[in-house]
Structure formats: structure tokens, C-alpha cells
Design a binder for these strands. Structure first.
Length: 508
DNA sequence: GACCCCCGCCAC
DNA sequence: AAACGTGGCGGGGGTC
């Protein structure tokens, strides 16, 4: 039975404005009725619900303010990308005309399948994605086709065009007339409590949470202001470590996370027979030595560790890192699964999640966020959702609490965005930078206490600058095509870098 | 032409 | 047999 007899309102017979009023009324009143019904089932509102409502303040502010965009940089980047794409497309069409008498659209999987598999008669590349085997022309499939000499020039141009087009989309996103990129944040849209980001209600702006690192330099502080980005270091890994400690009193993984360099510490545990010295610098050098092809031991523990924490199989790990299956199996045995693994608590964490799903079909995070799992408790997919839920959700609430506190306690700064494990705000250039950054870092600290009394925080790392990209990448000046980015973000350290805007790092 | 699904791909 | 999770967007290409 409908809550409201909508047919009596006959909205289509009403004038346009009244149709909207009816629509709006249904939207809000039905929601309210649902709320009342739920409220009866649960008279005490969960704290997490009030928290979500409190987040409306800072997020509305972020959405209204928008993030300033360097219009000249944006336009010139868009122009040069378009030129490069046009040039490549002409080349691709020349090849394609010669090969099959028509042009080829690199963004059409249908045309590519026709071209590579029917016309060129190359062996089909079937990939399994989300449980389904598919004839694919994605990057992974095309890279497999590169083994065939005739396919090579096509593959390389297609991949280049796709990559450049993706970048162009970011620069071509419509920005508001005042030069600001306004994104819409959905506070309560996800399963985990993460906010999501999308284009706004007027159709301008876009997802601000998936801008590639190399394109962020077009996002800038307002005149007279400076950006600060604070991110939570290794936050999801630490959360997994905290759960292992709380559940099984096994703190080895959290200890490794807190040792200063998680990935090097991981390497020592995973490959104990290597000649570790205990000296941070020397051990880092040892961890940076190559393990397989371009992968160092440290890379392996970083990428493989994350994947393994989330119940990724050796098969997935081998595919993802492009390494032999045996190496992935060997890694996982030493990391978590073998007879004497570095982190035996991790499989215990998986088993505990499986048990919870079997018995209660629900999980609750340290912040009291509860999620019911409606999938079949025994399915791997359900288990994976559960395993990922706890750290993801804990991270989301931790970051949002930090964001809310900065908004509430630091009226002198202006929030600009949230990117899962980081927040971005701007502060006045003539303000006391050290005081502001330190205060924000304090507010980001959220302490959790385990039953054994162990206190757990995730440290924040601050970066400051005048645009949203890093000034350096791998120790070098950073940017697209070696673009020098002197106004980019640098790691903030107390008392360091009093450089003013536009001065290069070397003259500071 | 509006709508919808699929594909590919970006983020953490 | 299937093979790590959470999201959003643009384009192609089908249907209505």
C-alpha cells in the first residue's frame, strides 16, 4: 500500500511549477514517513546518524565555495592535449584505412573487436572481470596483442589516444563563470561511509576525488591564500593492524606500520634471511633492491601486501603485478598464509569476518557504523566486501571527523575538498603557517583505545603550496612533460621552507 | 533525441 | 569456479 495516494495528485495535469512542488513534496514527505517508521524500530538514534547530519555543514560549505582553477593553465593544457590527440588520430586513421578501408575509433570496443579479432584475425583475448569472462579490448588485452608485430603500431596509438583523452576530459569539464570547480559531495551515498563526489546539480564540475596526480596543478589557492593538504599515513593498513591487535592481541602488523617505514619493515619480516642491519638507511637500500624485473622487495610488500590484506588471491596478485604465479604464492605464504608467516593474524582477521557474517550478517566499526550484509554469507564476494568494509569505513569516519573538527574549530581556514584519506583547505598567506598546520594536524588525530589499553592514532602528514600538485615527484621537479612546478605542494616541516610564492626551491 | 547499459579507466 | 573493495564519468551503441 502506498504511503501517499499519488494518483489523486495527478501531477501531470498540473502546471509545470506545481508539478515540481508535488514532486518535491513527495520526495521529502515520503522520506519523512520512512524516517518515522524507522525511528519506531529504533528510538535511540545511532551516533553515526547524527554525525552524518553534522557533516552537512562542512560539505555544503565546500560545495558552495568551489576550488579555484587556473584558467590559463587549463586552457593551454586542453589545447595541447587536443592537438596531440588529433595528430595521433590522423595517424591511426591512415593505418586503419590501409588495413581495412575505414577509420578506427579507439574508444569503441565494438570497432576494436571487429578490427583486431575479425579483420586482423588475432587470437581473442578473454579476460575475467567481476566474475564474467569477456572478450576485451582494454589496456590489459591490448598489451597482450602487442606480441603480434602487425598489431603493435595500432595498440600503441590506441592506448596513447585513450590516455590523452582521459586527461582532456578533466580539463574540458565545465567550470562555473567565476572560475571555480564546484563538485557535489554525497555524504550518505556509499556502503562504507565514504563520501562520493560528482558533478553538481547544475551539471558543472565533476568528481574531485579522481583527478590524476599529474593534472592537479590547475587547481589553485585563491589570491592571498595558500593550500594545505593533510593526509593520513598508511591509514587502512594501520586499521587492519589495529583490528588484529584488538581481536587476537597480535600487534605485529600494527607495530610494523608504526615502525616508520611499513614497507621496509614488511620486507624484513617477509624475507628474514636477507642481510638486514637494523640501520634504517641501509635496510631501505636493501629493500629497494630488485626482486623481480622492475619490482623491488619493497614494491612487492607494498602492492602485494595491500592486495593480500583484502583477500586477493595469488592469481590476482600475479596478474596485477605481472609476475609468475609461483612468486605470488611464495609471497603470500611468507606474508600471511604459510606455516610460519610474518603476519599470522591477517588470515585470522579474514576468518573472524567470515564468522561474523555467518552468525550475524553484520559488521560494526570502531566508530559504531553498522553494515548489514545481504549477500550469501558463505560467498567469497560477501566475505571480500566484509573484509574491505571495516578498514575502509573506519578510515572514512576518521577522516570525516577530522574534517568536521577543522571546520568547527578553525574558522580561519577554508575547506576545499576531501579525497578519502586526505583533506584540502586554504589559509591566508599572512597567517601563522606553523600554528595553522600544527593545529590542523592535532585536530586530525583521532585516538582509539584497545581493551588492553593500547592507544592508537594515525598520524597526519601535511603538505603546503599554491597549487594542488606535488612540487616534486620521486625527488625531481614534477609535472607533465617535465613541467616545472615551483608552486606545487611540498611536505611541511616545522620551521622549514619559508619560501614565498614563485620563488624556486633552490633560492629559498 | 532521450534513455540506458556496457566498457574502459581515473581515484583511494 | 573464480580470482581485492568503494566510487563517478565519458563515449559507444543499442532501444524506444
Amino acid at each position: 500500500m502506498p504511503l501517499i495516494a499519488t494518483e489523486t495528485l495527478a501531477p501531470n495535469s498540473l502546471p509545470y511549477e506545481q508539478q515540481h512542488q508535488v514532486y518535491c513534496g513527495l520526495d521529502t514527505m515520503v522520506t519523512l514517513e520512512v524516517f518515522h517508521a524507522l525511528r519506531e524500530m529504533r528510538p535511540r538514534l545511532p551516533a553515526i546518524y547524527s554525525f552524518e547530519r553534522a557533516l552537512q555543514g562542512p560539505y555544503l560549505e565546500i560545495m558552495q565555495r568551489g576550488f579555484a582553477v587556473d584558467q590559463l593553465a587549463r586552457a593551454s593544457a586542453a589545447r595541447s592535449l587536443q592537438e596531440r590527440i588529433d595528430g595521433l588520430q590522423i595517424q591511426l586513421d591512415e593505418f586503419a584505412m590501409a588495413a581495412w578501408g575505414r577509420p578506427l575509433n579507439p574508444n569503441s570496443p565494438a570497432q576494436l573487436k571487429d578490427f583486431f579479432y575479425a579483420k586482423m584475425r588475432l587470437p581473442e583475448v578473454w579476460l575475467s572481470q567481476k566474475g564474467e569472462r569477456k572478450l576485451s579490448c582494454n589496456r590489459e588485452a591490448l598489451e597482450k596483442l602487442e606480441t603480434y608485430l602487425y598489431a603493435r603500431p595500432f595498440v600503441s596509438i590506441i592506448l596513447s589516444i585513450r590516455e590523452l583523452k582521459k586527461q582532456l576530459d578533466v580539463f574540458n569539464t565545465e567550470i562555473d563563470p567565476d572560475g571555480r570547480y564546484r563538485t557535489s559531495y554525497n555524504i550518505a551515498g556509499t556502503e562504507t561511509g565514504r563520501p562520493s563526489s560528482s558533478s553538481n546539480a547544475f551539471g558543472t564540475g565533476g568528481n574531485a576525488q579522481n583527478i590524476a596526480a599529474g593534472l592537479r596543478y590547475v587547481f589553485i589557492a585563491d589570491p592571498g591564500w595558500k593550500l594545505c593538504v593533510i593526509d593520513l599515513e598508511q591509514v587502512e593498513a594501520r586499521d587492519v593492524g589495529f583490528f588484529c591487535g584488538c581481536l587476537f592481541d597480535d600487534w605485529k602488523f600494527l607495530n610494523a606500520c608504526e615502525s616508520g617505514d611499513l614497507h621496509t619493515a614488511n620486507c624484513r619480516l617477509i624475507w628474514p634471511e636477507r642481510h638486514w642491519t637494523g640501520d634504517l638507511k641501509k635496510d631501505r637500500t636493501l629493500a629497494d633492491e630488485l626482486f623481480y624485473r622492475e619490482f623491488s622487495y619493497r614494491d612487492m610488500s607494498k602492492r602485494g601486501g595491500h592486495l593480500t590484506n583484502y583477500f586477493g588471491t595469488p592469481w590476482t596478485m600475479a596478474r596485477h603485478l605481472k609476475i609468475p604465479l609461483r612468486l605470488a604464492e611464495d609471497f603470500q605464504d611468507r606474508y600471511a598464509k604459510g606455516p610460519s608467516p610474518a603476519y599470522p593474524a591477517i588470515p585470522r582477521y579474514w576468518a573472524w569476518v567470515a564468522q561474523e557474517l555467518q552468525t550475524s550478517h553484520r559488521l560494526v566499526t570502531p566508530f559504531g557504523r553498522e553494515r548489514h550484509f545481504f549477500g550469501r554469507a558463505g560467498d567469497d564476494t560477501t566475505l571480500r566486501e566484509g573484509i574491505a568494509f571495516l578498514p575502509q569505513s573506519t578510515t572514512a569516519d576518521r577522516m570525516n571527523l577530522g574534517l568536521w573538527r577543522v571546520w568547527k574549530k578553525m574558522p580561519e581556514v577554508q575547506l576545499l575538498g576531501q579525497t578519502y584519506d586526505s583533506i584540502t583547505f586554504q589559509f591566508r598567506e599572512d597567517a601563522d603557517e606553523a600554528a595553522i598546520v600544527q593545529r590542523a594536524l592535532e585536530l586530525i588525530r583521532v585516538e582509539l583505545v584497545a581493551r588492553n589499553g593500547r592507544r592508537y592514532i594515525v598520524p597526519g602528514e601535511a603538505k603546503v603550496g599554491w597549487n594542488w600538485a606535488s612540487r616534486h615527484q620521486d625527488g625531481k621537479a614534477f609535472g607533465k612533460g617535465n613541467r616545472f612546478n615551483p608552486d606545487g605542494l611540498v611536505k611541511w616541516r616545522a620551521g622549514k621552507d619559508k619560501r614565498r610564492r614563485g620563488e624556486s626551491a633552490t633560492t629559498a
